[in-house]
Write a protein that binds this DNA or RNA. Structure first.
Length: 554
RNA sequence: UGGGGAGUCGCCAAGUGGUAAGGCAUCGGUCUUUGGAGCCGACAUUCGGUGGUUCGAAUCCACCCUCCCCAGCCA
């Protein structure tokens, strides 16, 4: 973790941390990122990761990675590895790698402490009865008939729960707080439940498992976490968090703070819904490039820096928010514009024959890898008599604002020559199948000695040298801004969220590119090599389009 | 109708009694060997509403309105 001096506070969390440090309440800031291993991390988690690791780093402290693995029935090791990879990929390193389950022994001992001190009791109400006793939002709850068992009886029962003498649901351990509390979380919340289940880390050692509300505060205290940052829905739980800390002989005094989770339009973010997309195969797995998961964004071609930048721009506050995905897209474009090398590729090829270019010949033309970054150098691209240009870049009868190729018109081929369309070849049904053109040898490299300035510059590829690649064009997964709004979010799936171009024509320099390599296909967008690529055929994912002023005019 | 939060531009978000930052989006213009990028400019007389305090209020007070969260042996 870095040791740079504290940055000036940029949000209320950092303000609190800054003030706590200034007041000497803590010497070191310690945070934790506590995912439950029951699904993949998504962009919302990225915000939390950037916050927790970011704050700790900025103030010279550290952040622990701690799995909240207190519910064996929902959790799986498959997710553990994915989570670690994602956090690391985002560019963060944790100090300690822990699991709530590391503390099960201590947590159990402290539960007995609560019992001994008359702060917890074993309840034997059924789940339904307990719900009835809990009361409602407007009416207080009733005390369980088991609430006043003696400490001895409670201890005996609790030990027998642990020993496996009872079936699931027979008893629970509850905190003895206040059944009439206006805060439902304080109406004797459950601390432990019986679960005869195999835990992915502790195996069959336990058949009672602590609840989040009981496990989290002491886990923070054991790790000396100072600022336990979570999302708004836990605000109501803070009094319980404090109660647990105050009633246990824990080694430190952490505090909980809540911020608003990230929401994005045109997507869904709940783990339940994401899981459904995966299980019902509406997408091809958790890392499908259309998913808002970190794995999906990675495969889509997003850079860690762009996601960190996004988290920064989005801010941290307590206000409910729905961020426009356009901001996320802006962040990748901004990063990739500066870092991705350019390459030419034609998605929808239209053949162009340069009639005055010698047959069977070719030449190499030099072109910059990245006009935004001279240090990226240059490469050469082959030019010859037969080329492909984008079908979209030609119109037989162009409207006023269309500056691209048309019969009789001269345009520049990027880094190559000016060409003039001389005729159009059509098939029987009238479709344009080929263009005939002439080139001006004096314009080699793309400049005319006489100062002629064509209105358009097109990307192109030499037919004989082009390599065939599969290109996957992604669009937003949902057609509507708030797919979450109605009852069936699947009804809003965008049927055109994936369009496959089986054989796009790419310039030969991309041959052999490794998965995750990112490029800008000039005038088209940013693309990233997909792991589905083989030595036979490269597969590219479109990360984001380039803004296309003409497309907008149409 | 209990409790906990939140309401500043289309979307985020600063602002902490002294006269509304910034970003994204949008719209103009400029430039351009990517109609990309860049550059320049426009974009809240107004801060959920109404009263009040004050020389002065988005900021303080009162009342009201709207939205979100909580009745899992989930996290």
């Amino acid at each position: 973790m870095s040791t740079e001096s504290p940055a000036k506070p940029r949000d209320f969390i950092r303000e609190i941390v800054d003030e706590d440090l200034r007041a000497g309440r803590y010497q070191t800031v310690i945070t934790r990122f506590p995912p439950e291993p029951n699904g993949y991390l998504h962009i919302g988690h990225a915000k939390s990761i950037c916050l927790n690791f970011g704050v700790a780093g900025e103030f010279g402290g550290w952040c622990n990675l701690r799995y909240d693995d207190t519910n064996p029935t929902k959790e799986d090791v498959e997710y553990v590895d994915a989570i670690e990879e994602d956090v690391r990929w985002l560019g963060f390193s944790w100090k300690e790698h822990r699991h709530a389950s590391d503390y099960f022994d201590q947590l159990y001992e402290w539960a007995e402490h609560l019992i001994t001190h008359g702060k917890a009791y074993v309840d034997s109400l059924s789940a339904e009865e307990m719900r009835e006793y809990r009361g409602t939002l407007t009416e207080p709850g009733k005390e369980s008939p088991y609430r006043n068992r003696s400490a001895e009886e409670n201890l005996d029962l609790f030990r027998r729960m642990k020993a496996g003498e009872f079936p699931d649901g027979a008893h629970v351990l509850r905190a003895k707080i206040d059944m009439a509390s206006p805060n439902i979380n304080m109406r004797d919340p459950v601390l432990y439940r019986i679960r005869h289940d195999h835990h992915h880390r502790t195996g069959d050692k336990w058949c009672i498992y602590p609840m989040y509300d009981y496990a989290h505060p002491p886990s923070d205290a054991i790790e000396h976490v100072t600022h336990s940052i979570c999302t708004l829905e836990y605000e109501d739980h803070r009094p319980l968090y404090d109660w647990v800390i105050e009633n246990l002989p824990v080694p430190s005094r952490p505090h909980q703070y809540e911020f608003a989770r990230l929401n994005l339009n045109y997507t869904v973010m709940s783990k339940r819904k994401l899981l459904r997309l995966v299980e019902e195969k509406h997408v091809n797995g958790w890392d499908d490039p259309r998913m808002p998961t970190i794995a999906g964004l990675r495969r889509r071609g997003y850079t860690p820096a762009s996601i960190r930048e996004f988290a920064e721009r989005v801010g941290v506050a307590k206000r409910e928010n729905i961020i426009d995905v356009a901001l996320l897209e802006y962040c990748v474009r901004d990063d990739l514009n500066r870092t991705a090398n350019r390459v030419m590729g034609v998605l929808d090829p239209l053949r162009v024959v340069i009639e005055n270019y010698p047959e069977g010949e070719s030449e190499e033309l030099s072109t910059p890898n990245n006009p935004e970054d001279e240090s990226a150098g240059v490469r050469s691209v082959p030019f010859s008599r037969v080329l492909y240009i984008e079908r979209e870049d030609f119109m037989e009868d162009p409207p006023k604002k269309f500056f691209r190729l048309a019969p009789g018109r001269e345009v520049r081929l990027r880094s190559a020559y000016f060409i003039t369309c001389t005729s159009v070849v059509k098939d029987e049904s009238g479709n344009v199948v080929e263009l005939r053109a002439t080139y001006d040898p004096a314009t080699r490299g793309g400049d005319s000695p006489d100062g002629r300035k064509p209105k358009a510059t097109l990307h192109w590829v030499s037919a004989a040298h082009a390599i065939d690649c599969e290109v996957r064009l992604y669009d937003r997964l949902f057609k509507v801004e708030a797919p979450d709004a109605g009852e069936d979010f699947l009804a809003h799936l965008n049927p055109d969220s994936l369009r496959v171009v089986p054989s796009a024509k790419l310039e030969p320099s991309v041959r052999g590119a490794h998965p995750q390599s990112r490029y800008q296909f000039e005038r088209l967008g940013y693309f990233c090599v997909d792991p589905d690529s083989t030595s036979e055929k490269l597969v590219f994912n479109r990360t984001a389009t380039l803004k296309d002023a003409w497309a907008k005019m149409k």
